[in-house]
């Protein structure tokens, strides 16, 4: 089973940095890409308050807040490592 990465492309996430996150595959090695399934998602439904922690990404069942391309790359690598150690 691959690791599922769902990047929120809803309005609030997209304008707060989600647009850049959609290009995450350019930041991963071919080996890493083999192990993840990167998808966009219309909206994770997490931003419905005045001060949300957008953008959001969901890696398998875990929600990550205020994601940047650096933190996302790091979190994906950690997830790959954790899976390998299982």
């Amino acid at each position: 089973m691959k690791i599922t990465v769902q990047i929120c492309s809803g309005t609030a996430c997209y304008v707060m940095g989600g647009a850049e996150l959609l290009s995450i595959s350019e930041h991963l090695t071919p080996d890493e890409l083999e192990q993840v399934d990167i998808k966009g998602i219309m909206c994770l439904g997490l931003c419905e308050n005045y001060n949300p922690n957008t953008p959001y990404v969901k890696i398998d069942d875990e929600i990550i807040k205020n994601v940047t391309i650096e933190t996302l790359t790091e979190r994906i690598r950690l997830a790959i490592k954790a899976k390998a150690e299982k």
Binding site: T11, M16, N49, Y50, T54
Partner: peptide, 8 residues
């Protein structure tokens, strides 16, 4: 959506 009204 309140998030859209955020000043940031």
């Amino acid at each position: 959506n309140e998030a859209h009204q955020n000043q940031n």
